[in-house]
Design a protein around this nucleic acid. Sequence first.
DNA 1: CGAATACTTGCAGCATTGTTGCAAAAGTAC
DNA 2: GTACTTTTGCAACAATGCTGCAAGTATTCG
Lengths: 137, 137
Amino acid sequence: MDNITSLFKKNGLSITDGRKKILSYFLNSEGALTHADVEKNAGEHFDRVTVYRTLQTFVDKGIIHQIPTTDNSILYALCKDDCGAGHHHDDHVHFICEECEKTICLDGVMVPQVKLPRGFKPRHSEMVVKGICDDCK
Amino acid sequence: MDNITSLFKKNGLSITDGRKKILSYFLNSEGALTHADVEKNAGEHFDRVTVYRTLQTFVDKGIIHQIPTTDNSILYALCKDDCGAGHHHDDHVHFICEECEKTICLDGVMVPQVKLPRGFKPRHSEMVVKGICDDCK
DNA sequence: CGAATACTTGCAGCATTGTTGCAAAAGTAC
DNA sequence: GTACTTTTGCAACAATGCTGCAAGTATTCG
Ligand SMILES: [Mn+2]
Ligand SMILES: [Mn+2]
Ligand SMILES: [Zn+2]
Ligand SMILES: [Zn+2]
């Protein structure tokens, strides 16, 4: 029983061909992926609806996490921390390279705390840094 | 000549009814606004395309800035810094209240610098904090 | 001011993206 | 293998975003 299979088992998900291919695609990709990436490159043709539902399921189970963007798209990347259904702990910084357009999880860089004005209670913080990545510099 | 008019003049924009109403709407709103907000509430009916073009123009001229989200929408908020055409300086933290759903520019809270891995060159950073705002606590 | 020019708007049409219900197919449990 | 549960694909629809073009406004300049 490989990694992928046991991960699905652990989360009470049926082991289907689509889920295996989509998760493999994430495992074999460097950066974050969009819905369109998955639809085009996950290895075979999956219905658009299936891709939506699969990504949503993976997010719900703590298998992938979302990265906010400013261009009406959502990026998805593998959770490498101890995320699970209902509790994500992806509090690392994301880096978007303006040259190669890749989005990279900087798993070693934690999102810093900031001092908020009186009365504001933080629960979760996101940080996205744009610039030039190591490969493109 | 009021504020709005002179701001448009300064940026070489024609003074039109639509632009005045849309900018007024931003000036009279507390939090950040979506395209849909503007289309519904800017005071009269503007064509969807007009709203897209107006928002884009305002972003280009440094009158409003965009705030990244994780739900396929873009939020827009007034620039309060010395932004202009081609140079935005909105490096403040944004706060999204999970109770009232408002998004607030924390103009006094700068996005902190983070130490990136060797080779990564940062150019611009965004930070979004979710939690409970002062009004809802 | 009024005419010439430049810019902005709304509309039509289209493309892309996201959602729901339902029946067929695939997976799981016994 | 059969009964049961879950997942998938399809159809239909809704929402969002973009472009070209003609008509409408705003600005410029005499
Ligand atoms: Mn990440
Ligand atoms: Mn802001
Ligand atoms: Zn790069
Ligand atoms: Zn609130």
